[in-house]
Write a protein that binds this DNA or RNA. Sequence first.
DNA 1: GTTAGCACTCAATCATGGTGAGTGCTAACA
DNA 2: TGTTAGCACTCACCATGATTGAGTGCTAAC
Lengths: 346, 346
Amino acid sequence: MADLLTERSQNILEAIVEDYISSAEPVGSRAISRKHNFNLSPASVRNVMADLEDMGLLCSPHTSAGRIPTGKGFQYYIDTLLEVRDLNQIEKKNLHNSYRFQNMKMEDIMQEVGRVLSGLSQYTGLVMAPKFISTVFRQIEFLRLSQGRLLMIYVSETGLVQNKVIEADPTLTTSDLEQIGNYLNSELNGLSIHEVRSKLKRELQEDQSHFDKLKKRALSLSCAALQDDVEDQLYVSGASLMLGQPEFSTPEQMQRMIQTLESKKNLIELLDRGQSAEGVQIFIGSESSHVDLSDCSLITSNFSNQKGAIGTLGVIGPVRMNYSQVVPIVDFTAQLVSRVLDREIE
Amino acid sequence: MADLLTERSQNILEAIVEDYISSAEPVGSRAISRKHNFNLSPASVRNVMADLEDMGLLCSPHTSAGRIPTGKGFQYYIDTLLEVRDLNQIEKKNLHNSYRFQNMKMEDIMQEVGRVLSGLSQYTGLVMAPKFISTVFRQIEFLRLSQGRLLMIYVSETGLVQNKVIEADPTLTTSDLEQIGNYLNSELNGLSIHEVRSKLKRELQEDQSHFDKLKKRALSLSCAALQDDVEDQLYVSGASLMLGQPEFSTPEQMQRMIQTLESKKNLIELLDRGQSAEGVQIFIGSESSHVDLSDCSLITSNFSNQKGAIGTLGVIGPVRMNYSQVVPIVDFTAQLVSRVLDREIE
DNA sequence: GTTAGCACTCAATCATGGTGAGTGCTAACA
DNA sequence: TGTTAGCACTCACCATGATTGAGTGCTAAC
């Protein structure tokens, strides 16, 4: 694709994208030929623009308006033309100082990250906490709520606390529960939930023969408890900032946008798809299927601790986002959070 | 106040308020005289309307439009004219069936309540979970995260799980922590956090003399852990429904509204003020101070379990809300949730 | 290959006038 | 004295039409 464009076409496309990013208005040939010193007349620029339009990189809202980049145009810009510089030391320091992670539990950290991301980028911050299933076992505790109902409290290596109500055999005594807890805590320490599950399944089968009743109960109880139906936590901050963007200025667009941000399930699904990737990812809205993200872009990066618990953070904004500014922020924040989860820094 | 209005004035005010509630448009004298059979000509209605306007209960957006009720007018309507019928058995059953509380932990219940409230009322649901401080102690657990950092896990009588990271003396061993936990669990069971705090303070002072070092450590550690800086949880559901209301149809109003709903701190403060009251409360926006709730009304009710943990739930909508429909829903839902917290029903 | 020139398009803005819903006031009526 | 018919008046709303200006595509000359 990159080869298909002459250098001049690339320069002009870049100029158009960047003008459009800062103005949100269609860009005309005159403006390009004046502001950027290509030494080209508006007419020549127009010729190039017509070519770019034929290739599907630009479009014009109507005959007598300027051009705006299409999704494909933005994609090309991001893939080929965008230069993302790393933050320098001072900027990193500043960014680091924006966060206050002292004495924060997982949920607070996630919330804080969203708050700062949206504050710095002036777009909407998204943070998806590490999934239950990807965490490493640290401790489990059972507590009787009523006859047949138990509260399971599960703590991961990073201090993530999950809890869940489960139905259980009402004949279990409190001391049974304590013993079951002790057994599980000694057996499962340091394993990921993933590993825990397969271990439990294996043992449940093997145990068919010799009947240690308590152990069996422990196994089946924890099997029930650790089922992965704990919902992912998604934190959305600064939704109102989206409404300030000119592309969402009509009431219909605003309502649509807020609905999108409210349907966390769909957003989670979208973010999940990027969890295998490394580094910063950019989705351009028009493609994405389930969620109505037309006119939106998503800049995300995964974070993880050394034990492999993976979460995702990022920013959602108009396609016309200031990528060169936001990408490094998202990138560095993800690194920062990864280190915080390992308690390397505060 | 009620005495100041003749019965006819009251009837006309009521008609205007109700017409306005269903249409969101200024109500004219003709419409009143036609639709409601007062046997009055438009001209007579106009005379009454002029009086009501003088009293500050109505106003007209401009000379040639109809009248709309002022905040004061709505207040009068709510205080004097509104008749709230109780739900009948079938409606109660239906409402009950809308909720699925099976095997839900506290947070899920709160979220579910918000979801259903907003769904039924078609306005925005608000649910504030019971405060940490008002819960009854059930169990506490300490877990070491790193050298000097502990994770405290606190479980209330109702199964509300709070957790918090605290700094602590790094020389505490794991078995110290276990003993401290055991001590606290046996001593504090069944007390409210409020009582726990005063008990701890008292004992810390009394203990100056005879030095049980471990006990002292337990006391000071739990004192630190139970400080009331755990933020209240506020669940907002169906924010986009607000944007569908005609009073929030302009972009500016929409953005203002979303900002208001995002500033949970202010909303919590507002809801807190009503926590001492019984039954359903109605706030009309214009009065409220901190939060920008002009054109909004709040219908809330507190819920609580028998041990006294208090939360608040309700609905936020335009002043022009359908009070007679929403009030019973909020009322009954609060009763329902109270009973769920006591595990009387599911 | 580049550019000046020109006709053309079309959104945006503004002024204009007609329409209709609604009001306030007055005078007549019961 | 309360009620009502009549009437002049107000004003948001809508459709129409003219003007403007930014921008385009095309062509012919450089």
